[in-house]
Amino acid sequence: MTTPAEPLIEVRNLRHEIDGRCVMAAPAFAAAKGEHTLLLGPSGSGKTTLINVITGLITPTSGEVRIAGQLMSALPAAQRDQLRRRTIGVVFQTLRLIGALSVRQNLALAQRLALGQNDSTAIEALIAQVGLTHRADARPRELSQGEGQRAAIARALCARPAIVVADEPTSALDDANAIAMSDLLLATAEATGATLLIATHDNRLRARFDRTMTLAAPQVAA
């Protein structure tokens, strides 16, 4: 149903208000299959809010979000969950790795939920790619912030989603790891043809992305 020309992510007239205050206003934006976009903007400009809107976790006050051609606001909750499960991998700013599970188990669960089955070879390969083979049995609380971020990125990638959305995936990483992580995200996206959207104020990433989208502070936009 999705032709290569049709954008995987399409956003129009998007605005979100909380308690009457505009917290996010996004310019029109579309990302085709395989495109890599950096979502920029100062702290508090609404990057996380926009990601929540795109992943269907928040229904915006006004405007439209289309994922793979489907209007999110028109979908019933169950179908929205299904679309997200099948299409989008998310890396959250707060990681949200499941504390009771090891790194490997976190990946396996995500893969299972998205695909309904486990492919342990793919998981091991991914763990090796993010350099966590020696930490694969560790619990998230035993990981450093950077190791946690790498684990969360691996988890978002393990179901090979068409869209990968990451919220500040490199904020806690040193230069070498930040570059390595963005390279991993880019390389995986390249390999799977995934559309990448990364929210960050990390200028180290800027040079590696062809496209950017900048959110202005909402007060100014409004």
Binding site: T55, L57, A78, D81, Q82, R84, R85, R86, V90, F92, T94, R96, I98, G99, A100, L109, A110, L113, A114
Partner: peptide, 13 residues
């Protein structure tokens, strides 16, 4: 609660 939210994001009904 965070885990539950994450499970929902990962597509669990």
């Amino acid at each position: 609660e965070g885990d539950m939210a994450m499970l929902r994001v990962m597509g669990a009904r």
